[in-house]
Every structure is written in C-alpha cells, then in structure tokens.
Nucleic acid binder design. Structure first.
Lengths: 305, 305
DNA sequence: TCCTTCGTTTGTCCTGGACAAATATGATAA
DNA sequence: TTATCATATTTGTCCAGGACAAACGAAGGA
C-alpha cells in the first residue's frame, strides 16, 4: 500500500504542464480527469490520470481538439497516435534512427555518445545538424508520441545531443566577425536545444553568437541587444509554443527594438504562423538560416557608430 | 505613447515566477501590486510593478517576509538588499570577483570566456569549482540582489560558465568505474548549473555520471535509476526550492527506490533542512562530495547481479 | 539552552461565473 | 468546383471571495 501514489493539482501542473485552471475546467466540462478528494476536499490525481493527460496533450500538440479525445480510453488514444505517424513506403526507418532508438531503449549512454560524436566528425557540424539531428529529433519525437520512449530516455537523448553540439561549437575559434547575433527564447519557452542547433548552424558561417540561454524576459532581450550591439536578435520557439503569445511578444519586442536591429524567429512553431508580421523574419527550418544570413549580408551596409 | 507597456497576470507570472494566485492574494492583503484594469476588467501590470515584484522576491528568497516589505518603496527595498550583503573587513572584493563583475557589466563576453578558461586551466576542474566558481556565484548572486546586474547579464554569466564546465568535463575520458551516479533535478527545479558543478566534482574522481539534465518527473527518476543500474541517485536543489516540496519528494522517491541505491540531495536548499531524513544523504556543499564518495566506496561491497 | 505550545502569517486550493480568442461550420460569391 | 465571409461552438483564461493547513515567530516551561 503506497501512501503517496497520488499528486495534488500543482503536482499535476508541474508534471504535465497543464495549468490548474485548465485541469479544473476539463473536469467541469468533460468529466476528465475526475480525481478523488482528500480529507480536505482537495483533488488527488492518480498516476493513471497523469499518463492519460500526457497522451491527450501529445495529441493536442498535433492539432486534435480536447473535446474530441478527452473521453476516449487510453487504448484509443494510443491508436490515434499511431495513425498520426506517416508510415514509410518501405515500412522501415533508416538504419541510424533505428539504432539510436535502440540505444535509448537499452539505456546505452556510451554507444549513444560515440555514435553521435562519430556522425558529427564524419559530416561536419552543419550537415550533422541538418541531415542527422533533424530527422533524429523527428524520430525521437514520434517514438515519444507513441509512448515507446519514457520521459527519462528522451532526457538522456537531449542531454547527450547537447554535449555533442556544445563540444563541436566550442571547437570553432571565437569569431569577431559580422553579424553579431543574440540568441535566446521567451520566458515561457523551456527548450534550449533549438537554440544550440541554431548556434551550430551559424558559428561555421563566421557569425558571432551571443547566447543567453533560454527564458530571457522581454525587456532584458531589448537591453541585451543594445548592450551587446548585435545586428540580429534570433528567438527560438518549440512546436508547442502558443502562436498567439509568440505574435504578441514578437510585436512588442519589435516596437521596443531599435529599427536597425533585425528580429528573427525560428523553430517548429513558426510553421503554424499564418500572417506575416512586419519587421520580423520567420525562419521555419534550419536550412533557411544560411539563406537568411546570405540575404542579410548582401543588404547590410557597415554603419559608423 | 507605447500601446503595450503593460502585461496581464499570466505575463507577470511568466516574468516573475509568482503564481496568479499569489499575485491576486498579495493585492487583496497588502494592496500591492495594484494594477489597473483593461476594458474587460482584467489586471494590467506596469513595468514598474514587475521591477518591484522582482525586488520583493529577491528579498523573500533571503528570508524576509512579504508582509514586512511589500508596502515599502523601492528605495527602501534596495537599501535592505544592500544591508543584507555582509561587508568585508577590508571593504574590498577579491580581484577576480571584481574583474568578472566588471566584464559582465560591460558585456565583454570574450574576456569573460578567456578568464574563466584561464582559471580552469590553472587550477584544474575540482579546484576551479570549489575556489573560483563557488565564490563567483556568490558574488554574482549578491550583485543581482542589489540590482547591480540585469537579468540578461546574469544569463550571460551562467551560459559562459556552463560552456567552460562542460568543455572541461568532456575532456575527461568516459569512465566505466564505480559508482555509477544518476544526476538530475525535480520537475519544478529549473537550475541546471548546480548539476553541472556536481558532475565537475565527480568526474575527476572516476565516477561514471549519467546526467538527465533538469526536471525529471519522480516516477522517471526511479525508472532511470533502475534502467541504468546506478549505485547513487544525486539530486540538486537551488536556494529558493521549497523545503517542504523537497522533503515530500525525497521521501516518496526513497520509498520507491530499491534499497541498495543511495539517494543524495545537495545544493543550497539542503542547508535549510532541519530534520534528518532516513535513507537520504544531505550534501550541503560541494566539497563534501569528495568525503561522501570516499565513505560510499569504503562501505560498498560489489554485488553480483 | 532547548523544546513545546499557541497565535499569526502566508500560500494554495476551492467553486462557479463570465468572456474573448480560436476554431469549425455553413452560406454565398467567383 | 474553390475561395471568402459570417455565424456558431469550443476552449482557455480571468475574476471574486471564501476556506484552510503549513510555516513561522514569540512566549512559556523543562
């Protein structure tokens, strides 16, 4: 009899990323999750609740609506997740993806590290990011969506990839060239991997990257851009980032930023953006960075400051 | 006339880390912050509100109580922050701390990187962590508390330090020795720097570290520990982490973890813990890691699995 | 000095109502 | 047929105000 196999509402918020308000509203509207109550009338969620909430969230991130899926049993949810993965013609994943997934599932950190380092050496940093990391992220994301990967297995992947990328980035001598680019994310964006991938694409191009890591308040992005005299501010947004929040933030930042400083927004989220936003360059995939840089360089005229 | 120099309540939650509930409750009880309302009756906070909220939060992290400070004007808050910093007898900060702070305030990323790399080379990884990074963190924390440093300046420090540490850790050949240690933090703990410092202390001791990065759900920490067959699970807690939440989490984890696996908890928070917790080793400072490892090794008897 | 008890402070949770943004649906025009 | 617009539905976020337990601090006793 485990005494504490339940979590209170803030525990669930932490574990799933769903706000307390949303959890209560879902219960009110859809009848799920319907946690028991403790002596004090407070909601106590079970681990099964958490699991189903994660499954629902995964499907919502892909565009399904809560009302449609909330009441379905777990089996149905898993089936829908499977259906979402486009089957390959040959029915086979490429060897590398398959190997890496196998390593993750067998918790072989050493082989994982070796394989990544190996590919990196063979391909060089930029090709490694475009041809290896991108499809690998996709494969890991798919596996995670289908529930094939545990959270901690995905963490291990992220961690090892960061190690590999950071090592390679460090190997480049520190540039003093142009443009100078400020890299960061908005405060509610947790994922720092995208940032690192952007840096990996830019550094070989002779760009001087100044990374603040994730989660910089809006006002500080402005201050940092001015203090570091950067030419470009580049922000990264993961797939799950709310488009609305991003647009508002970007517009506000654009207003506050001196006009000569370019504002670039990249990451999975940017593919869901419909409207073009004046003064903001959307970069939906990593390969476009090269073109964007080329374009910037051809238009830029050195300023006397 | 800037149209959007105000934030709604969730914006403030993001920027300050104070929950919506707390923000509303403070307004109800202390009359601060008292934001204006938009057409729809929703709270609109000003940038000045944000600034004061940050100041209040800094002081609370050091032990002051909200009721005492909430209504004071900003000038008073800053004065209190100053008073909190123990003055040195000689009135002078050591040269290195002073230099690094100067570099941060002048946004000289290059010098910062060089200086850190230099100290690291000269002292070696463990001494660098104990004798340079620890007091430096303290100095940067103090400066931040006094409002001398901007958020983005502190971000730059963290980022550059991570780069330096990771590079050095990578330089060690991957060990296959004992113990194997799983490193991570609880889901609500954002700070990954402590984790890296722990790894930097352990790797030179021949420990095989498996880091999952920050924010692993409880259940997954258990799964990962078993899957990776680790001997020790080490968790890091920053100063602001709620003791209660840590104790609960650690106790729950201890119950779920197989008995032979040791559970270590370290970081600033652990100094505030009064009660000893059975089966959990508290490690209040980084130097103690060496002793803890020595002790573990002398007690450990290789198991046949 | 250390420990217990008791009042106060503080954070979190609750209910149930309201509304606007996002999305889907259906009608109309090209 | 496809594209565009208006309307309906869905969904997330906000609000008020009440309640309570954990954390804290002060006073009293061993």
């Amino acid at each position: 009899m485990e005494p504490s196999l339940t979590l209170n509402i803030s525990g669930v918020e932490r574990e799933t990323g769903l706000s307390k308000d949303v959890l209560r509203m879902w219960e009110r509207r859809y009848g799920f999750p319907k946690p028991g109550r403790d002596d004090n009338g407070e909601r106590q969620y079970t681990l099964a609740d958490i699991g189903k909430l994660r499954a629902v969230k995964r499907l919502m991130d892909v565009g399904l609506r809560p009302g449609k899926i909330m009441t379905l049993p777990m089996a149905e949810l898993n089936a829908m997740a499977d259906a979402r993965i486009p089957a390959r013609r040959d029915g086979l994943a490429p060897a590398l993806e398959r190997d890496i997934l196998t390593m993750l599932k067998s918790h072989d950190a050493t082989s994982l590290q070796h394989t990544l380092a190996n590919m990196l050496m063979r391909q060089g940093l930029q090709r490694f990011v475009l041809e290896t990391v991108t499809p690998l992220n996709q494969a890991v994301g798919d596996a995670w969506m289908q529930g094939e990967l545990q959270v901690f297995e995905e963490h291990l992947y992220t961690e090892q990839l960061q190690v590999a990328l950071r090592t390679a980035i460090n190997a480049f001598p520190r540039q003093v060239g142009t443009p100078r680019v400020l890299l960061t994310t908005f405060p509610s964006e947790q994922h720092g991997l995208g940032l690192l991938m952007v840096e990996a694409m830019m550094v070989p191009e002779g760009v001087q990257c100044i990374s603040l890591g994730p989660q910089t308040p809006l006002e500080d992005i402005r201050r940092a851009a001015i203090a570091h005299k950067v030419h470009i501010v580049a922000l990264s947004f993961s797939a799950a980032f709310p488009v609305r929040q991003a647009s508002d933030g970007l517009a506000a930042l654009r207003r506050q930023l001196p006009a000569p400083i370019s504002l670039w927004a990249g990451g999975e989220m940017t593919r869901r953006v419909r409207k073009t936003m004046p003064g903001i360059m959307l970069i939906p995939d990593l390969a476009s960075i090269i073109n964007a840089l080329r374009s910037w360089r051809s238009h830029w005229v050195p300023q006397t400051i």
